[in-house]
Amino acid sequence: MTASPTPATPAPAIPAPVALLLRVVPLYPLSPRRAGQLVYRNLLVARRSWLVFVSGFFEPFFYLLSIGVGIGALVGDVVTDTGAALTYQEFVAPALLASAAMNGAVYDAVFNLYFKLRHAKTYDAVLATPLSAADTAVGETVWALLRGAVYSTAFLLVMLAMGLVGSWWALLALPAAVLIGFAFAAVGLAATTWLRGWQDFEFVQVAVLPLFLFSTTFYPLSTYPRALQVLVECTPLYHGIELVRGLVTGDVRWGLLGSAAYLVVMGVAGLAVGARRLERLLLR
């Protein structure tokens, strides 16, 4: 007597909310293992150009020495928008830490990714492997935020050596810097897919430089007229600086969770747009 074949088990249905999320945030199919292979590939390449890799640390460090220490001797104490009194060095240093995370992430996500996409044709080869466009977007974003994390760690150690860390909450400044790197790397990846040539890099500088100068990096938000305060409060680096400054100085408050949520939403949205744009550019 022949046994009847066992009916195939139907694939589990994807819950409606999850299915909707996958349609809105196109990061499927995504494999952390495959994305990790792209991160490993970038690490092998970076070993041959490590001088370029570490050079991004020096710009915020020189700003700390020249402005934070030099001008700080003339400025004196600064009263923050929450009423805390800090020396000018203590006020500027956390902002430069956040800027270091932004600079590292943007440089890698924009400049290096553009070269791979438009000239080296790296992703044409990558997508001939089992990696998907979502794997590529996540892998490049992770690599860029790792670069920002390296800069931030070195900068935080310099701040510690100079006595500019005022609280044990500063241990969370590194995860905060990684979050800043994630947000800017994801948006930088998405923006790179619209760059038409090297001349368009001027638009990147036009976006990054005002963020660096006016996001309460060098003076409190209260120094602006109210209309400009509202504009600054809408910018991503402002929220990154508020988050890092609050943790480094020990001025921890519930509003910092709002800044962290802002950066999370920015990063997820950037990844979604970047993955979709890569897929359209490379798989059409």
Rank of each mutant, 00 (worst) to 15 (best):
T2S: 14
G188M: 10
A101V: 08
F111M: 11
M162L: 15
D124E: 15
L189W: 00
A35C: 09
L27G: 03
Q229M: 14
N112M: 12
L281W: 00
S215L: 07
L21F: 05
M266E: 08
R47C: 04
A207T: 12
T129D: 10
A272Q: 04
A35M: 10
V265Y: 01
L221K: 07
E233S: 12
T216P: 04
G36A: 14
A84W: 06
G255K: 02
L171S: 04
Q89I: 01
A8G: 10
P17E: 03
G240T: 12
A144Q: 06
T223M: 14
R23A: 10
T141D: 08
A191M: 12
T6R: 12
A173E: 04
Y262T: 07
R33L: 13
V126T: 15
H119P: 02
L283M: 12
F115T: 14
A85G: 06
L172V: 09
A84H: 13
E59Y: 09
A16C: 03
D135R: 02
V165M: 00
S152H: 03
V138W: 02
A173M: 07
P26N: 05
A11L: 13
L243F: 00
V204T: 14
I180T: 10
L51M: 13
M266P: 00
V178A: 12
D124Q: 14
L278W: 02
R280C: 04
F61R: 00
T193D: 06
G70L: 12
N103D: 13
A154Q: 01
R47H: 02
T129A: 07
L195F: 10
